[in-house]
Design a protein around this nucleic acid. Structure first.
Lengths: 158, 158
DNA sequence: GGAGAACTACTCGGATAACCAGTGTCCGAGTTGTAAGGG
DNA sequence: CCCTTACAACTCGGACACTGGTTATCCGAGTAGTTCTCC
């Protein structure tokens, strides 16, 4: 899995703390985590394409969350960054080879693929259960001062 | 995810049907699915390293299952092929940057990483629940004639 | 002094290279079946 | 006829190229703030 997922999630957390009124530039987000600016921009553009964030062009532009954090799940972020296609893609090798015709009826779906899809569905379900609001809550419970300090850092380094 | 996983699972299914008495060469397995021989050999070598299959060198050598199919899960195969490290690897970017020191206490684990691990654990649990014996049973229920015909194909094309 | 227009600085956005893991291929080490040769 | 021994064929096993995707970078399009000029 690409590391852009980690970047996107952490950036989304900060976007939640800052609030949807103010747009945050990629430059500041990258400086906050010491990440390559242009590449982080590319990842957040993927979030925009996925409908998670919205971009504001122009002089005092930047990014903000397009939806309230209660309606943004980790699955949404992962899907926006990594793409919608599943990790395991069945190539239907059971139909290849000299024996392919007589094998498990071509009409039915590949059972191996079904098992893999079942597992990946469980993974996706678990990710969908975790929402951004829940995650920020957990962080506030675990380290109470962090959100306020992060907010101040972003507002100070204008 | 690499496609070697699909190859390995299907080959393991055939190894179950053939039985542990006879060793099957990579050449025949590759011919059965029309796959590149040497590369499939590499993948099955990974299975051997994982303790799932055992190799028999020499003239009438080949591969066989090292354990009964009841004790081989899909997770074992995936882990042997793809490696034990999780798909999402936390780079601890929360500790990077100028604000890193004051952030979520470094002592505690990253909550984002915890959420990702939780999801991946669910995926792994689902894969561990599916065993090779169960899968072969399902295939026999879905397409009863296949195992016997496959066995005959492998014994005929010596 | 106020309004308007041109300018500039800063932003996103997509097009463009560099690097690395997965993919594919090749040849050597090793073992076993086989057959020839001698007793 | 049987045992020993050398041979040869076939197997796995790891070392060597290639390729697509992730990673990283750069420059152009566009917008808002700012300032200068004219009325």
């Amino acid at each position: 899995m690409g590391r852009g997922v980690e970047w996107a999630v952490h950036c989304c957390l900060n976007l939640v703390w800052i609030g949807p009124e103010e747009a945050v530039t990629v430059t500041r987000l990258a400086a906050f985590y010491d990440l390559p600016v242009a590449y982080l921009n590319k990842q957040i553009q993927a979030l925009v394409r996925g409908g998670i964030a919205s971009s504001v062009p122009g002089r005092r532009g930047g990014f903000r969350l397009a939806r309230p954090p209660e309606r943004i799940s980790l699955l949404d972020i992962v899907t926006a960054i990594e793409g919608p296609e599943p990790a395991f893609r069945c190539a239907e090798i059971r139909q290849q080879g000299p024996f392919g015709d007589e094998r498990e009826s071509v009409t039915g779906h590949c059972l191996v693929d079904q098992a893999m899809r079942r597992a990946e569905l469980a993974w996706r379900r678990e990710l969908a259960a975790q929402t951004l609001a829940g995650l920020t809550e957990a962080v506030e419970r675990d380290a109470p001062g962090v959100p306020e300090r992060a907010r101040r850092w972003f507002s100070s380094h204008t």
